[in-house]
């Protein structure tokens, strides 16, 4: 076959494949927005569910997801960032530290439902926290810990070596060097990883299934030892477990969850692209 013609056909096939990946994203977004927008109202966002969740709002689920995400940040961000600082700035490069780094990278690929089992085993049962916001937050936190450690590590490693050398040569101590000449320049990367981790924590269902999520609660949680409803689990419940729920309520719930997660991701993308433009080394 004529190579020019072959090229044309090949490029058309590749384009088609690309469209097959990207178009469904748009279709999914359009369907959810199109069918769910009519459900969104002040009442839907900020009131309690009524009549066996067929009417009223999804406020407890939204609030529950916020609680869980905040709990996960409080736990995972300091621990993850400090662990990354340890791995990049303090640990020496030997087989043990390489093994640790490899394990942490691989931990990011462990199924979320396995984290759910772990959370059930350690927080709910072993520590006796029961099914509670505390257990759920810690479980989500552990799930996003590898994401935060890995992205923080990459951000720290991308700060040029010579910043450290220069700082130390000017009489700064090791910690001062990290604090003033490394962390500020790694911050956008760390922030990006953190927000992506949050997006993941907000959208995951399997880890909270047995550690915190409640099918339906008549009142809002009062303490970290209470169960809570959560958006992703609520969507699962109303789309598979409870018959007779109006279609636009389901789509509306999906729309709220999707907006929350996509906003977080959008924020991460913006931070990253602004940082890339400002970067000078």
């Amino acid at each position: 076959m004529n190579p020019r013609l072959a090229q044309k056909i090949a490029f058309a096939v590749l384009l088609l494949a690309t469209l097959l990946v990207v178009l469904p994203v748009l279709v999914i977004l359009l369907i959810i927005v199109g069918k769910g927008a009519s459900a969104i109202s002040w009442d839907f966002l900020f009131s309690m569910p009524r009549d066996g969740m067929t009417a009223g709002g999804i406020f407890p689920a939204i609030l529950g997801t916020l609680y869980l995400v905040i709990g996960a940040i409080i736990f995972a961000v300091p621990l993850g960032v400090l662990a990354a600082v340890y791995l990049v700035e303090y640990s020496s490069d030997n087989w043990l530290s390489r093994l640790v780094k490899l394990s942490i990278v691989n931990l990011a690929g462990v199924p979320s439902v396995v984290y759910g089992l772990f959370g059930l085993g350690i927080f709910v049962t072993f520590f006796g926290f029961g099914a509670s916001i505390l257990s759920g937050s810690l479980t989500l936190g552990i799930m996003i810990l590898p994401v935060i450690i890995t992205s923080s590590r990459e951000a720290l490693e991308s700060v040029p070596r010579h910043f450290r050398t220069v700082s130390l040569s000017l009489g700064a101590s090791r910690w001062q060097t990290i604090r003033h000449s490394v962390l500020p320049h790694a911050l956008p990367g760390i922030l990006t990883g953190m927000i992506l981790g949050l997006g993941r924590a907000a959208g995951e269902t399997a880890p909270i299934l047995f550690t915190v999520a409640a099918f339906y609660l008549p009142r809002l949680p009062q303490s970290v030892f209470d169960q809570t409803m959560a958006l992703p689990y609520h969507l699962y419940v109303i789309s598979t477990q409870v018959p007779g729920i109006a279609e636009n309520v389901r789509y509306g719930t999906a729309l709220v969850l999707l907006s929350l997660v996509l906003l977080l991701n959008l924020a991460a993308i913006l931070i990253r692209s602004r940082f890339r433009r400002k970067k000078k080394w």
Partner: peptide, 16 residues
């Protein structure tokens, strides 16, 4: 020691 003995490197390396 490093404050008493300052160094200028081969390449100009200002901090950003």
């Amino acid at each position: 020691l490093r404050r008493k003995v300052g160094i200028v490197f081969a390449l100009p390396l200002p901090l950003p």
